[in-house]
Design a protein around this nucleic acid. Sequence first.
RNA 1: GGCCCUAUCGUCUAACGGUUAGGACGCUAGAUUCUCAAUCUAGUAAUACGGGUUCGAUUCCCGUUGGGGCUACCA
Length: 470
Amino acid sequence: MIRTRFAPSPTGYLHVGGARTALFNWLYARHHGGVFVLRIEDTDAERSTDESTQIILDSMKWLGLDWDEGPFYQSQRTDLYKKTAERMLEENKAYYCFCTPETLTEKREKAQAEKKAFRYDGTCADIPLEEARKRIAAGEKAVVRFRKLEGETIVDDQVLGPVKFDSSVLDDFIILRSDGSPIYNFCVVCDDMDMKITHVIRGEDHLSNTPKQVMLYKALGYPMPHFAHISMILGPDKKKLSKRHGAVSVLSFKDEGYLPESFRNYLALLGWAFDDKTEFFSKDDLIEKFSLEHVSKNPAVFDYKKCSWMNGQYISKTEPEKLLECITPLLEADRINISAKPLSWWMETLNVEKQRAFYLNDLVKSFHYYLDDSIAIEPQAKEKHLTAKKSLELLRKFLVLLEKVEPYTQENLENAFKELMEVESIKFGEIVHPVRVALSGKTVGPGIFELFLCMGKDMSIKRIKDALGQ
RNA sequence: GGCCCUAUCGUCUAACGGUUAGGACGCUAGAUUCUCAAUCUAGUAAUACGGGUUCGAUUCCCGUUGGGGCUACCA
């Protein structure tokens, strides 16, 4: 049975990189009919917050990444870590260290000044356990250090292949703080073992930690999980993607009007590809086709343009019923009254407007010009099409014809335009632009007849009158 | 500084020793007797560099350079 896990630390929102890690773990588990575990790594009491945990949970739900077990909280599992550490102490695989943070910092700075790598010098490595216990009983503070293994450690990575680390680059690292709380590298091993994780899929920033963990597995006599490290996600400047680059939290994409399925699709394409042409994948496609073999090794730059293009593609392919459901809260937030129009009108208008929307918010904006009492005309649009005397004159004449259109159909609207074009001997383009700007306040939008039909006769007349200042 | 990962169009990527190096985003141009940021069509653009191995290297090996990561009583 394949078991994967996503183990974020709740020190902020869930960002793009974390989301992709979660996605790959989830996909791998689902593809193999395995189990996906969620574990919150909150052993850093200083930085972990409940709000962050909630945001992470919300983000995952939005992306549709459902977990089978958890969320487990490391802060509630200290017994496991303490017992394991105690066992290691007894077996002489770990030892108490009384060096103070101050002396350690001093030594580290000195090493840095000499441009040497700092490694713990083993000052306390030979203190007998009994003596150490007496000193602790007497009130001294001590951390627990792991006695590192000698020789070469090989991480057989599922994405990168075998990666060698020499023992000399590591030192006797701390597994328990002086207050008895456990350190990340130690918890991970205890938990992954306890939760029977078979595949550890995580960001490449954890690759350097892996030899430490491999040593712990060996020392503890635990079976080794498979490791798979996926490359970092970069910003346009090729630096690790961060706040500096703009929106990076998953929820901000939600707020910007992304559909979770499109965002998930784009995320999957960052570091993974199925073949040389397919790029649209439904949830089921992703589950069926995902494999670690097709994960690429090199870092990927997050392309906001392609991401929004993909969102636009999804929006235009989405059924209007579904779209209305998605934007209902947004409409309400914008005080647009949904019951002001029949459902059929919403469906028709959504089908028209979805064609060129990139974000759900674009859709919401478009409903303002259909439904608001009055609209603001974009300055540039007004300048270009509603300022020249001739434009206004034509618009005035068109209004007269429009009022007589009955019944209000595309054919009759076309005839109204034709009549004006003949009488004034003008081209379609000369009248269509002023009309469009009058109706919507914008220079771009749906076809003019679609716009008229969705807007309705009364509102169309009102918009033109408003534009003429009547 | 030390250690580790990595290198195909500007970007995401396909090719797993033999292809006119493919697709997508972007960009440019044309089309749409109505707009465009939509749509359609066309075009632009890449194997970082230097050595090997091989009949043959994008592909395998080594080095250089570039990019990234780690180097805490953070995760």
